[in-house]
C-alpha cells in the first residue's frame, strides 16, 4: 500500500484527510482511487497535478510505477519559467 500525502489546501476537498494508504501500482490508478474516494478532488486532478514518488517529482505521468512502500505526495501542477 502506498502512503499518500495530500498537500495543505487540497485537504479541504478530502474532508480534512491529510494522509492515507492506497493500493495502486501506477500514478493513474492512484489518482483514480483518490477521486473515487474524494469526488471533490476531480476538478483539481483533471486540471493536472504533480506527484512526488519517494522524493522524485512527476508531472502528469499516468503510468509511473508506484512501489508497495512508496510515499506519494500529491501537489499542484507545477510550472517554470
Amino acid at each position: 500500500m502506498a502512503h499518500v500525502v495530500i498537500f495543505g489546501s487540497l485537504r479541504s476537498f478530502t474532508d480534512g484527510v491529510s494522509e492515507l494508504e492506497i493500493d495502486a501500482r501506477s500514478t493513474r490508478a492512484l489518482l483514480n482511487a483518490l477521486v473515487e474516494r474524494f469526488p471533490a478532488l476531480s476538478e483539481t486532478v483533471e486540471a493536472g497535478v504533480s506527484l512526488a514518488i519517494d522524493g522524485e517529482i512527476y508531472k502528469e505521468a499516468w503510468f509511473t510505477p508506484i512501489g508497495p512502500d512508496s510515499e506519494v505526495v500529491v501537489m499542484p501542477l507545477m510550472v517554470g519559467g
Binding site: F7, A52, D54, G55, E56, E71, M75
Partner: peptide, 13 residues
C-alpha cells in the same frame, strides 16, 4: 539535505 522532508511535502534526494 538528503532525506529532509521538504516544506512542500516530498523528501529531498
Amino acid at each position: 539535505k538528503e532525506g529532509t522532508k521538504s516544506s512542500y511535502g516530498p523528501r529531498f534526494k
